[in-house]
Design a protein around this nucleic acid. Structure first.
Lengths: 138, 138
DNA sequence: TTGCGTGCAAAGGTTTTGCATGGCA
DNA sequence: TGCCATGCAAAACCTTTGCACGCAA
């Protein structure tokens, strides 16, 4: 899998995501964070590079806020994330990795009964985590 | 629960959704469908009325297509309406609706064992449909 | 008559694209 | 040197909003 040229901009974007793997970033936030470090990056460049990273499976793209835009989060070398599901809380943004035998059967069921091969690197189950649900946030 | 005034436009929008309860409609599609029936409705009106229907719980709002806008689907009066999953083929873009008892149990499992409440209006399972898988398209 | 509903156009926000320039390999 | 990457501005989209007019009750 080719990664294309190595440029200052790409390096800095990737470093930012790597340094905060537990957080998600909007394009705006990425541009702002980098500028705060005296690192100028054009917005188009961010959009284009993130798209590449998403295609490569290194970054996940989320749609959390209703009206707002997409968010991105580093996904790591997906070897370990291949077989399990991801739950993303739409209220607090927390990402939960779930390793569960029962859920693994889901993939098999969907393939057997609906002829559909789930791609775990791109699939995210959206909803409310326990804390946010308890706090009554819909 | 007040429904406000009864107008020609609202009547026609609601009738369209009622007549196709198993389908999603984008705002564009609603406007187009109605125009095809010689029924002029302003886009703003559609947005505003749909928002009311969503608030009233009569219509569900989905965020399915990545770049595109929201989709709406009639949800009925009662709460017994079964939630369904959406499968989206990452190769051909086809969207598959799945009503399946087994998959409905998935929501219950995730809630019971992982304390997470899945939001079906925002969740889409990505992967390969049968045709694309057969065609060997990754 | 009163006040909500409608529709147009303009505004607001996010993402994409065209094109000339810049920089990696 | 040959391409890909970058960045700016413009364009493309989806959605919201302001305002004057229309219409239900």
């Amino acid at each position: 899998m080719e990664s294309g040229y190595k440029t200052r901009q790409r390096e800095q974007i990737l470093q930012l995501l790597l340094a905060h793997q537990e957080e998600h970033f909007s394009v705006d936030r990425i541009v702002d964070c980098l500028r705060a470090q005296q690192q100028q990056v054009g917005r188009s460049t961010v959009y284009r590079y993130l798209e590449k990273l998403v295609q490569a499976g290194k970054v996940r793209k989320y749609y959390i806020e209703e009206g707002a835009g997409a968010c991105y989060q580093y996904a790591g070398e997906q070897s370990s994330c291949h077989e399990h599901f991801h739950l993303k809380c739409t209220s607090c943004g927390r990402l939960i990795h779930v390793e569960c035998n029962y859920l693994e059967q889901v993939s098999e069921h969907v393939l057997a009964h609906h002829s559909f091969t789930i791609d775990h690197t791109k699939t995210v189950l959206y909803g409310l985590c326990a804390d946010c649900a308890a706090r009554g946030r819909a």
